[in-house]
Design a binder for these strands. Structure first.
Lengths: 104, 104
DNA sequence: GATACCGTTCACCATGTGGTTAACGATCCG
DNA sequence: CGGATCGTTAACCACATGGTGAACGGTATC
């Protein structure tokens, strides 16, 4: 299960990187500054984001330009939507049950 | 970061359990059958789901009734929605970036 | 009471994860 | 050329994760 967007999002630093890239492409330095960890640690998180397909990278001179891959993230977003649709229906079932209780 | 729904969802077996519970409460056996791992492994995954607040449990005789906690899962679902709203605008951002490149 | 069943805990193991410092390669700039 | 900058790789470490078989505690069933 190497290509798993949920795995990519399971660490707060990686979610932070995704948040910044959701606003637009950025270099490694721009996208990862201020997390309070060393550069190798950042490099590792970027590797995970690349392996899972969430982020792509293009070398530009001595910097790298990072971009989000919405299609891959959509796999996770769509899964969440499907589950939410189901558990939302559970609320309705409970509501109906409670109304039936009241009317008796 | 112990109470992190993303951590709960980072393993396919735990997502499978969530999928089943999204259709309604179930016992451990009902919710976790057929994953092809031993009972201790299942027990551990349930522990993670409980620790992260995604699942609650009520003992009923010798079985346990598991229920989903939508509020906790909504934290993850809402985050995904916010990001998706941002990366939905991303196509325009990329267009602008490419136009700036061309005009230079 | 004996036995089967549901699910957990215990002890253990292999691997993965996340972090560090040090060194490196490549690129830009004086 | 020489030095600063961007980001990676290498080597290492501590801890978390995910799995197993064995044993256990309650609860139902006969």
């Amino acid at each position: 299960m190497v290509n798993d967007p949920f795995r990519a999002l399971s660490h707060p630093i990686r979610r932070g990187i995704v948040e910044r890239l959701a606003e637009g492409p950025a270099t490694v330095g721009e996208a990862t500054g201020g997390f309070g960890v060393s550069k190798p640690a950042i490099s590792h998180h970027l590797k995970v984001l690349e392996e899972t397909g969430v982020v792509t990278r293009v070398a530009e001179g001595r910097t790298h330009r990072l971009s989000l891959e919405p299609d891959v993230l959509s796999v996770a977003a769509d899964w969440m939507d499907r589950q939410r649709a189901l558990w939302g229906r559970l609320f309705d079932v409970v509501d109906e049950y409670l109304k039936e209780e009241e009317s008796q």
